[in-house]
Computed example of a mutant assay.
Amino acid sequence: MTISDDVLNASCRYEPIGEAERRRFQEQGWLLIPGALDAATHRRMVNAVDTIYAEEERAGGLRGDRSLHLLGFFSRNPEFAELLDYPTTFRYVWSLLGWNIYSHHNHIDVNPPVEPGPLPWNWHQDGYRQNSDVDLSPRPMLSLKICFVLSDLTEKGRGATQIIPGSHLDNQLAGRPAKTSDPYVNPPGAVEIQAEAGDAFVFDRRLWHSRSLNTSDVTRKLIFVGYTHRWIRPLDEPRYHPDANWQLGLSAVRRQLLGSGPDHANFWGVRQDGWIDDEIPLRAELRRRGVLDGSEPYLR
């Protein structure tokens, strides 16, 4: 789990992805980012997640199987903020979604081993009512997620995320049992994302996916950071606010990614007079670096 110095350099986060990667993402709905976290950052994130797990355990916040699914976690530890625009992953976010974005949905997942048995049907697309209220085929992407893999998921049976590559273009998924508790066979084309600790993957929110069962001796630990357009409402309500001013020391881009903005018009990418707002932090940064001349409409 090593990354060259030039990849970790802060400027790398503003290098657009290549056309081959863009096409593969558009066709498959996901991409693996090997070695996304350097060893030191990986250790810090594991320690931060372990600390939160212990806090939730003391507070009675774990589920019956001792798993944790914690929404809106950024304010729990200031170190998490660097994941918002981490160099090896953020370049995929703005390259695929554009500059008028923020992080609307985030969760930490910790899944200790459980006894073998049937896993309830959990195949889904993200977005909830976006999958009902938008009557198009296929529906628009609207959001994507970066998943930071903290534990070794290179072997099956460790609870890795299951996906169906290419399924983001299908509004429906066949194979759902009559009741979610009924046994079932995974849909055709389902695969586990077998990743090393420190890897990451990015996926289209429309990609049909599900968690698999962790029957190993390894605890599954993942951090998911979701991004969408700033004119879409947030999904999470942070459960913990140690300090209302905790964002003040962050960069302007990170504050944007956490949802800040001077007024409602700004979230739509314009000034109060209706003209495009060139001072939106991520747009201003990309413009300064000469990246806004791309072929995609949201990068113009």
Score class of each variant (00 low, 15 high):
33 I>T: 02
22 R>S: 03
82 E>Q: 15
268 W>F: 12
234 P>W: 13
233 R>H: 15
167 S>I: 01
253 V>N: 02
136 L>E: 14
237 E>K: 13
153 L>K: 05
141 M>I: 06
138 P>C: 04
289 R>I: 05
170 D>A: 07
153 L>Y: 02
231 W>G: 09
120 P>R: 14
7 V>W: 11
96 L>F: 04
206 R>S: 06
287 R>T: 12
266 N>V: 03
172 Q>H: 14
255 R>F: 08
273 D>F: 14
195 A>R: 00
60 G>C: 08
207 L>A: 08
207 L>Q: 05
160 A>D: 04
22 R>E: 03
197 A>C: 07
213 L>P: 04
53 Y>Q: 05
43 R>F: 02
105 H>R: 11
70 L>V: 01
195 A>N: 04
164 I>F: 01
151 S>P: 10
109 D>R: 15
167 S>W: 03
164 I>L: 00
126 D>S: 05
290 G>W: 03
84 L>R: 03
175 G>P: 09
228 T>P: 08
114 V>A: 09
31 L>S: 11
259 G>L: 10
274 G>T: 02
264 H>D: 00
104 H>E: 02
103 S>R: 05
202 V>N: 02
116 P>Q: 13
73 F>V: 02
1 M>P: 00
185 V>N: 04
262 P>D: 15
58 R>W: 04
260 S>E: 15
48 A>T: 12
36 A>I: 04
59 A>H: 10
234 P>Q: 14
200 A>H: 08
64 G>S: 09
52 I>E: 09
195 A>C: 14
143 S>Y: 06
214 N>F: 02
13 R>D: 00
242 P>F: 07
13 R>E: 01
128 Y>P: 02
26 Q>W: 00
153 L>V: 05
135 D>W: 09
103 S>G: 12
89 T>F: 05
178 A>K: 13
8 L>W: 07
187 P>W: 00
58 R>L: 10
178 A>D: 11
154 T>S: 14
17 I>H: 02
125 Q>T: 10
146 I>P: 05
254 R>Y: 03
226 G>V: 07
5 D>A: 14
20 A>V: 11
210 S>M: 11
1 M>H: 04
81 A>Q: 11
149 V>W: 03
149 V>L: 03
179 K>F: 07
151 S>K: 08
292 L>P: 07
112 P>Q: 11
286 L>E: 08
129 R>I: 00
202 V>P: 04
220 R>T: 03
2 T>P: 12
165 P>C: 05
235 L>A: 09
75 S>C: 15
255 R>H: 12
263 D>L: 01
243 D>L: 06
164 I>T: 01
237 E>N: 13
17 I>T: 00
259 G>P: 07
298 Y>E: 11
64 G>D: 10
292 L>I: 03
109 D>H: 15
112 P>N: 11
62 L>G: 05
255 R>P: 08
15 E>W: 06
209 H>M: 07
239 R>M: 09
222 L>D: 04
181 S>L: 11
88 T>V: 06
19 E>N: 15
145 K>D: 08
157 G>R: 06
244 A>V: 12
5 D>L: 13
290 G>D: 08
